[in-house]
Simulated scan of single mutants.
Amino acid sequence: MRTRPTLSWTPAEDLPPGTTDVEPVAAALRAGGVLVLSGAGISTESGIPDYRGEGGSLSRHTPMTYQEFVGDVRARRRYWARGHLGWRTFGRARPNAGHRAVAAFGRHGLLAGVITQNVDGLHQAAGSEGVVELHGALGRVVCLSCGARCSRRELAGRLEEANAGFEPVAAGLNPDGDADLTDEQVADFRVVPCARCGGVLKPDVVFFGESVPPPRVERCRALVDGASCLLVLGSSLTVMSGLRFVRQAERAGKPVLIVNRDPTRGDRHAATRVALPLGSALGSIADRLGIPVEAPPGGNVRSDSV
Rank of each mutant, 00 (worst) to 15 (best):
T44M: 09
T44D: 09
T44G: 13
E45K: 09
E45G: 06
S46T: 08
S46D: 09
S46K: 09
G47I: 04
I48H: 03
I48Y: 05
I48M: 08
P49W: 01
P49D: 02
Y51A: 04
Y51E: 06
Y51T: 04
Y51W: 15
R52F: 05
R52D: 02
G53E: 06
G53A: 02
E54R: 15
E54H: 15
G55P: 15
G55M: 10
G55A: 05
G55S: 05
G55F: 10
G55Y: 02
G56T: 05
G56Q: 11
G56V: 06
G56I: 03
G56E: 09
G56K: 08
S57D: 05
L58N: 11
L58V: 10
S59V: 05
S59Y: 05
S59A: 12
R60V: 04
R60I: 02
H61D: 03
H61W: 15
T62I: 05
T62L: 12
T62F: 10
P63T: 00
P63G: 00
P63V: 00
M64V: 01
Y66G: 10
Q67D: 14
Q67H: 12
E68V: 05
E68D: 12
E68G: 13
E68L: 06
F69N: 07
F69E: 12
V70I: 10
V70N: 13
V70M: 05
G71I: 00
G71R: 03
G71D: 07
G71N: 02
D72F: 07
D72K: 13
V73P: 15
R74S: 11
R74A: 13
R74F: 06
A75S: 14
R76M: 08
R76F: 07
R76E: 11
R77W: 11
R77Q: 11
R78E: 14
R78C: 04
Y79P: 12
W80E: 07
W80M: 10
W80T: 01
A81T: 04
A81Q: 05
R82A: 12
R82S: 07
G83P: 10
G83S: 13
H84F: 15
H84T: 02
H84G: 03
